[in-house]
């Protein structure tokens, strides 16, 4: 089986209101020295496919659903488990 980890982040320079709100909340809890908080989404997809087929399939999934290229960057890791 394959374990696929996809991390979808906002591109550099794209506003992250969720991150800003979390930063502010942490400051209200008296945490100091926080420069920035960024929010990303992590998806785990488990696939019953051979490695090479799985990699191709994941690229399609990312293109068709997980990422909007205007605002997102992503990282993907495919491992056999």
């Amino acid at each position: 089986m394959l374990k696929v980890t996809i991390i979808v982040k906002l591109k550099e320079g794209v506003d992250d209101p969720e991150g800003k709100t979390i930063k502010h909340s942490l400051e209200l809890l008296n945490f100091e020295g926080i420069k920035e908080v960024k929010v990303a989404k992590l998806y785990e997809v488990y696939l019953d496919l051979p490695l090479e087929d799985g990699k191709k399939e994941v690229e399609e999934m990312i293109k068709k659903l997980f990422v909007n290229p205007i605002i997102h960057d992503y990282e993907v890791r495919v491992e056999e488990i």
Binding site: V14, D15, P17, E18, K63, N68, P69, I70, I71
Partner: peptide, 10 residues
């Protein structure tokens, strides 16, 4: 591919 996005409100 999408050419724009409607993203989280400020």
């Amino acid at each position: 591919k999408p050419e724009a996005a409607l993203m989280t409100n400020d």
